[in-house]
């Protein structure tokens, strides 16, 4: 059972596919767009763009350091380079290049990390980007976005490309539930309340948004009314939405497909601490690496489930 199925959400496209198709579409009207790839364009889905606009697509081979710094140079000349690789190979392998060739000079480079999270499955932990959000958020001036579904990813891709400045967009490998069947009311830095509630708030991003909706439905049967917020933009973070949720519902659980430290949970906790301290809980991969296996089995084993969110909400709610 996929996350969101219990809420009746249909399975939609993988967010990497939504990104790749949106990129290709945007390439038709914006000739400043270029791609710089580290030979995984058919995985990250920059390939449709590269096939449509071969003169604007550069595959520099398995050389992520060079890939990122080349993009910095292109951006300094007015191009809008989209640099895509697996989240771990982009953000972890080329972190210093992102720091020095992109973030510090504040260049208009669009970083895209695919295959994020443990739900990539069988390829195993070496391919799983689960530190990427922490690394991206540590860089001054970098906007960090983790969209939840295909519609959200299309809007996030457009918004990142329109923004003048460095961005990091995180997308996943597998199909995910459709959270926004009628299109996503996406605005960078603006949280989306996908379900209202009064007793607790679940703040999630990525595929844990449908998981949070499943949890909210289960908790409703227990008489706990849950607000669910899709906090797609981690940086800059929507402080008002978090503070309001803390004040109005009195308990907050953060759910994400990332390590415990430095991701959405840490970012939300800082805002809660500064604005309206309330009991909190965290659902994430923990402080550990995962393993090979089928995606659903991995999510279950490592606690990225609606049931885990339900438990965390009950505990936080019980401490109010």
């Amino acid at each position: 059972m996929y996350l969101g199925e219990a809420s009746g959400l249909p399975l939609g496209a993988a967010t990497r596919d939504a990104f790749g198709n949106a990129l290709k579409d945007l390439g038709a009207t914006n000739d400043r767009l270029v791609t710089v790839d580290g030979d995984v364009g058919n995985s990250t889905r920059t390939e449709p763009f590269a096939l449509a606009y071969p003169d604007r697509a550069f595959n520099v081979g398995i050389a992520e350091s060079n890939m990122v710094s080349v993009a910095g140079g292109l951006a300094a000349c007015g191009k809008i380079p989209v640099v895509a690789s697996f989240a771990c190979f982009l953000m972890d392998n080329a972190f210093d290049q992102i720091r020095m060739s992109v973030a510090f000079p504040n260049l208009n480079v669009k970083l895209v990390g695919s295959h994020a999270g443990i739900s990539i499955g069988e390829d195993g932990p070496s391919q799983m980007g689960i530190e990427d959000v922490a690394l991206a958020c540590s860089l001054p001036g970098v906007t960090v976005v983790v969209p939840s579904d295909a519609a959200c990813t299309i809007e996030a891709t457009k918004a990142c490309l329109e923004l003048e400045g460095p961005t990091y967009l995180r997308v996943g490998r597998g199909k995910v539930a459709t959270v926004y069947p009628d299109g996503c009311p996406f605005e960078l830095g603006k949280a989306i309340t996908v379900r209202d509630g009064s007793d607790a708030t679940i703040i999630a991003n990525g595929l844990m948004v449908p998981g949070a909706l499943d949890a909210a439905k289960m908790l409703e049967a227990d008489g706990i009314s849950c607000r669910v917020i899709d906090l797609h933009t981690i940086k800059p973070i929507d402080r008002d939405a978090i503070a309001a949720a803390a004040k109005e519902t009195g308990a907050i659980v953060v759910a994400e497909e990332h390590l415990h430290h430095g991701g959405l949970g840490s970012a939300v906790a800082q805002v809660v601490a500064e604005t309206a301290p309330v009991p909190m809980g965290f659902v994430n991969v923990g402080d550990q690496y995962a393993e090979s296996g089928d995606p659903q089995g991995l999510l279950d084993k490592y606690g990225l489930t609606a049931a885990a969110v339900v438990d965390a909400v009950r505990q936080a709610h019980g401490r109010k």
């Binding site: 910095g72 140079g73 300094a76 007015g78 060739s101």
Partner: peptide, 12 residues
Amino acid sequence: QGLSIGIGHALA
């Protein structure tokens, strides 16, 4: 990093 950045300028 400089030579890679230079490649970006040269490609542009």
